[in-house]
Design a protein around this nucleic acid. Structure first.
Length: 414
DNA sequence: TGAGGTAAGATAAGTCACCG
DNA sequence: CGGTGACTTATCTTACCTCA
């Protein structure tokens, strides 16, 4: 077989997928099986936004573990609420902010401003001034907005109490103003909120909507919905879906993580295609599970996309040192060394000690690496860094992202 | 005493309002 | 219109602190 033939035959090979994007993380389905109650509760809380716009500012908290539908519920709610608002002639916007990428007050306010297409300079304005510009814009054009702060715990950790207060209780300062901003706050646990001052905490936790892990039966329904859209008919049987649902189902000892279940289905499909199979077999699912290995890996690669160039370079440095040493831990100093080496061969100016330390702390907070303080048997005191997942696939992903960041940066500087 | 943690101040780069 | 001061974020520098 010649090279051309290989390419052509792979491309022309039949696929089990009709529309793979349905299985993407970012896909927002029309219907949300088993989240009807949460959606209804949201609608109940946000009712005044439609019935008496401007009268009151709504803040609702969504709490639940990873992969239980918080984000997608917020998206669906935003989408549907806009439709309702349109019918009533209310101009409503939905803004979804992931606090991984916008973790300072400045970043969040800037994201809000951007969605209103306000051309606001990157530097030179305080969050306060920027917010004022946004509020004036909204008033001028009679706009209302629901702002979702996803992964809110990061915002709390990084931006701190005052920033949260400013954002969420902005109308405390202008009690006479029309209430045009509303918030949906998403977090995995309530724990971080305790670091806020009690008044702010209780304000945020007044309306809580809980998301329980999915049971096997519920996962089955979700998978069925996705399968019908993503795969050609008769390529994935109900048995396959049931198999996945029972592995992941909360009542069957799984985590109840729908995202992981969908990922399993996606990978099984990819493997089926790769093997040239007409349909997805249980065997493919098993292989997919082997690939995914740990839920951790899903969790981590989920986080990677939010890292900045230098954070990625440090992560790569840690991976390399860990592999070369064969140990389960490396010292922070080694990571720093390797990092500046990696920077130098790329002709990038390495960040200095304090910054490296901050970055590593952030990697730890995001759960990408784990650290512990050295105990006895070490000279001095140092932080020991380890990575709890297979290194090779992780490094591959990190490399991709580093390349992408470098290209992005070069584009921006032209 | 060594290795790193951390706080504070300095600097760079960017923008706005304001003033003549 | 150009200059200036005030204020922002991000980063660096420095100097001191802490613990095994």
């Amino acid at each position: 077989m010649t090279i051309d033939n290989i390419v052509e035959s792979v491309i022309n090979r039949a696929s089990v997928f009709k529309n793979r994007s349905v299985l993407d993380r970012s896909y927002v389905p029309d219907q949300l099986p088993h989240r009807e109650r949460q959606l209804a509760l949201l609608a109940e809380h946000f009712k005044p936004v439609i019935t008496s716009p401007g009268s009151v500012s709504i803040t609702t908290l969504l709490v639940g573990d990873i992969g239980v539908g918080k984000t997608v519920t917020a998206y669906v709610f935003g989408r549907d609420l806009i439709k309702v608002a349109e019918k009533k002639g209310i101009k409503l916007r939905y803004v979804h902010i992931n606090c991984h990428s916008a973790r300072t007050l400045y970043g969040v306010v800037q994201s809000i401003a951007t969605t209103f297409s306000l051309s606001i300079p990157f530097r030179g304005l305080s969050p306060r001034e920027m917010m004022l510009i946004v509020l004036n814009h909204m008033k001028k054009h009679d706009l209302h907005a629901v702002i979702t702060l996803d992964e809110f715990n990061y915002f709390v950790q990084v931006a701190g109490n005052d920033a949260v207060y400013f954002l969420i209780r902005i109308y405390d300062e202008y009690p006479e103003a029309e209430k045009r901003l509303h918030y949906i706050i998403i977090t995995r646990s309530l724990e971080v909120l305790r670091t806020l001052d009690p008044a702010t905490e209780s304000y945020i936790t007044k309306h809580i909507i809980k998301f329980e892990p999915y049971k096997a039966e519920e996962l089955f329904d979700i998978l069925k919905q996705r399968r019908d859209l993503a795969f050609y008919e008769n390529t994935v049987s109900d048995e396959i879906l049931k198999y996945i649902a029972e592995i992941e189902g909360y009542d069957k000892g799984g985590k109840g993580n729908a995202r992981a279940a969908i990922e399993m289905l996606l990978r099984a499909g990819i493997i089926a295609d790769y093997e040239g199979s007409q349909y997805v077999k249980v065997e493919h699912v098993r292989k997919a599970i082997g690939e995914i290995r740990e839920e951790l890996l899903v969790d981590i690669s989920d986080n990677l996309q939010f890292l900045q160039l230098h954070e990625l370079l440090i992560l790569k440095a840690i991976i390399r040192r860990l592999r070369n040493s064969g140990e389960s831990y490396i010292k922070i100093g080694e990571a720093e060394e390797e990092y500046s080496y990696l920077c130098n061969i790329r002709k990038i100016k390495p960040r200095k000690h304090t910054q490296v330390y901050e970055y590593i702390r952030n990697l730890k907070n995001m759960g990408v690496v784990s650290t512990k303080i050295s105990g006895k048997g070490f000279r001095g005191r140092t932080t020991l860094i380890s990575i709890p997942v297979p290194l090779d696939p992780l490094e591959k992903r990190v490399d991709e992202l580093i390349d992408r960041r470098i290209v992005e940066r070069d584009v921006n500087t032209i």
